[in-house]
Design a protein around this nucleic acid. Sequence first.
DNA 1: TGCAAGATATATCGTGCTGATATATGGTCC
DNA 2: GGACCATATATCAGCACGATATATCTTGCA
Lengths: 187, 187
Amino acid sequence: MEELGTTAYVILGMLRRGARNGYEIKSRADVSTRFFWAISYSQIYPELKRLEGAGLIEGEADPAGGRRRQAYTLTAAGEETLHEWLTRDGDFHLELRHEGVLRLFFADALDREEQLELLHSMRAEHERARIELERIEPTARARFDESGDRFPLLTLDMGIAYQGFFIDVCERLERRLTEPQPISGGT
Amino acid sequence: MEELGTTAYVILGMLRRGARNGYEIKSRADVSTRFFWAISYSQIYPELKRLEGAGLIEGEADPAGGRRRQAYTLTAAGEETLHEWLTRDGDFHLELRHEGVLRLFFADALDREEQLELLHSMRAEHERARIELERIEPTARARFDESGDRFPLLTLDMGIAYQGFFIDVCERLERRLTEPQPISGGT
DNA sequence: TGCAAGATATATCGTGCTGATATATGGTCC
DNA sequence: GGACCATATATCAGCACGATATATCTTGCA
């Protein structure tokens, strides 16, 4: 079998969690993995067929009234493949795209006041993001209490701390730029 | 004029910094913006032509011996466009793809020992990344001393702290998972 | 002197992903 | 009855990545 992309493992993992079709996978991902690994329909539906072809999942017709629907489940091979990925050593895919930091990188083209405004609006952005995550938190906590699976809640709390990291960095830089004559760029 | 993608602004910014052609833009980006906004040749060369067509940059033949080379410079319009982007309020593009956190999200499928190994190898990955950044730091510091532009150094230090954030998170989680009976997933 | 290896410089291809849109049906509310 | 939203699948244009191809210039060293 060819190698699988990371998106394929999101699908396997979500199926293992109890998601049954493409729509449910996407809905769940949109309130969880989206923050560190987004997926879209145009990946999900072709990938479901590919995974079925590879024998990692099985689908059967599951119409809801007159609406066609396909219900998928993990096969033993699929379960094994997911486990292999989860325990694989190293080879992490790790990527950040952050337009705020990018602008900061070029901020020498700005005057002091504009630099401060950039930091301020960047901080505001992360504060909005943190609030969004904090709104999800009670739901995640409730689901933990039901399921006993603590990892979704744990990664959510990581996300909240992650936003906090950027908020702190912005605040520190804003303070430093406000000071009379800062010397260097040390940590 | 159509809207520009963020990559276009990387190019404008790099030209403003003194990069002259596609190769130099890519070389510089690979040791700086790469860590928060990666770009590739297949974006750079078509984009240079597009930006020239839009009047934001100007290119002239600049052969090096028998090797063809095109030297670009910012126009006044390009400078202005860059400034508009840098001072634009909000609308940040912010995106993370982190396979380690994703695996952690699904880590309920693992036993305790495998979970610890996942955290350990994730932490090792971030430690490698931090060391890579720390190796660049003296160069960035020297360039700051020459140019007086502190922002590249500043964003590099942010990157180092960023890796530190994940290292700390992993350590904390490793400790918590080692403890006898942790209760919840609180921060 | 010869020549291998690496740096400089541009270009392109396959693949994957995003965001938007299209198409239906089912359920809820007034 | 009809408006509106949720459910469910599918696809397309555009952007981006990573790898590779091509060619020339420079460096090192035997």
